Simulated scan of single mutants.
Amino acid sequence: MNTPLPASTDPQALSAVVFDWAGTILDFGSCAPMGAFVRLFEQFGIALTIEQARGPMGVAKWDHIQALGRLPEVAAQWQARHGHAFGDADVDRLYEVFTPMNAAAVADFADFIPGALEAVAAVRARGLKVGSTTGYNRPIMEVVTRLAAAAGYVPDNLVCAGDLAAGRPSPLMMWRCFADLGIWWPATVVKVDDTEVGIQEGLHAGTWTVGVAVSGNAMGLTLAEWNRLAPAEQQVRRSVAAARLEAAGAHYVVDSVAELLPVLDDIGRRLRGGERPQR
C-alpha cells in the first residue's frame, strides 16, 4: 500500500488557504483604508471621493497613493493647489502621513466579518494551512495583528506590502507564502480576497481564487449599511460587486468567507479529478 503524501506535497489535495485581511477576514466593507485615503488628501487640500479612494484598493499603499494622484481630477487639483505636477516625491510625503493615520484608524474597524473565525477554524480542522497577504505595510499590520490575535486569529504566516520588490497583482507575496508554509504545488492553494488585484495575485501565482463580493471593497458598505438595504437592492448590488471579481478572473465568488467551505469541497473534488486552476 502506498503511504499517503502530506497535504503540502500531494498535487491532488488542498494544502492551504491564503486570506486577505481587510474586507475578507475583518473590517466589513474595507472601510479603514478608504477613510484614511480621503482624510489624507483633504489634509493636502485635495477633495477625493469615496469612489475614487476605493479604486486601486488592494495594492500596496504607496502604489495606491500614486494611482490616486494620477487621476485627472486629482492631478488637476494638485497642480492648482501646490503649483507643480503630482510626482513620486509627493507620494513619499503623503505616504509618511498615511501610515500612522491608517494605523490609528484600523482599531475602529477591527471587528471580524461574521463567520470568519468559524471558517478559519474549519479550514484548520481539515488539516489545511492558513496563510495571509495584505496591501497594508508592516507598521499598520503590527496594529491589526495584535487586535486580531486578541480575538483568536493568528494565521500561519503574514506577507505585507513592502516586504518584497513588488506587491499585488504580482505573485511575489503568494510565492513567499508558499515558501513560508512549505507548499510545493500552487494548484493546491486557494486565495481568498475582496479586491480585483488580490484575485489577480492568486491567478498569477497559479492558485484557485475566491472573491468575496459583499463583505469587501467591491461592495464598500459597512455591515449595518448592508443589512439596511431591501433584499432587491442587495441583489442588485451583489450582482455588480460579483461581476467585478468575476471579470478579474475569480474562479468562485461568494458573499463572504462564511460561505467558503462548500467552495473548498468543490475545489477538492476538482483537484482529485485532475483539474487545475485556469487563468
Rank of each mutant, 00 (worst) to 15 (best):
R237F: 03
G249C: 10
A205Q: 04
V159T: 10
E51R: 10
A80C: 03
S8L: 04
T134I: 05
T133H: 09
A125S: 15
A250R: 09
M141R: 09
R138Y: 04
V143P: 00
Q234R: 15
L14C: 06
R269A: 00
V38A: 08
E275W: 14
R126M: 04
L68E: 02
D194H: 13
F109W: 12
A179W: 05
M1D: 14
A22Q: 02
M141A: 10
D90T: 02
A32C: 12
L71V: 02
G23F: 04
G167F: 05
A243D: 15
A248K: 07
L117V: 06
V106W: 02
R237Q: 15
V192F: 08
F112H: 08
R138F: 04
A85I: 01
A85Q: 11
M141F: 03
R269G: 07
P100C: 06
A122M: 06
H82Q: 11
L245W: 05
G206P: 15
T188P: 07
G127M: 08
V192K: 14
A232W: 10
G69R: 03
A213I: 05
Q200M: 12
E225F: 11
M34L: 13
R81I: 08
L117P: 12
A107I: 04
A151K: 15
R81C: 10
V189G: 02
A165H: 12
L181F: 03
N157I: 05
S170C: 10
N137K: 03
A243S: 13
L172N: 05
V240W: 13
N227P: 02
D266S: 09
D180R: 08
V257Y: 07
T195A: 14
L245D: 06
S256W: 01
Q12N: 13
N217L: 08
D163Q: 12
L94K: 00
D156H: 12
G220Q: 07
A224Y: 00
P262N: 05
S30Y: 06
A218R: 01
Q278D: 00
S215P: 09
A122N: 08
T188K: 07
Q12D: 15
G87R: 07
R138T: 05
R228M: 13
G198F: 09
N2I: 04
E51M: 00
A121E: 15
F37P: 11
M174E: 06
A224V: 07
R272T: 13
I46G: 08
V263G: 10
V38S: 09
S8D: 09
Y136Q: 04
A165L: 14
A218L: 01
A67F: 03
A232S: 14
R276N: 00
F41D: 00
C160Y: 00
A247D: 09
L264R: 14
L164F: 04
A103G: 06
E118G: 00
D63M: 03
D27W: 11
A258E: 09
D90V: 06
P155I: 01
Q235Y: 02
A241H: 07
L221R: 14
A32E: 14
A80S: 14
A67K: 00
R279H: 14
D63A: 04
L117Y: 12
N157C: 15
A60D: 15
N157W: 07
D63I: 00
E73R: 11
L94F: 02
E225S: 13
V97R: 14
L48I: 01
G69T: 02
T9F: 01
F98G: 05
G131K: 12
P114I: 02
W78I: 01
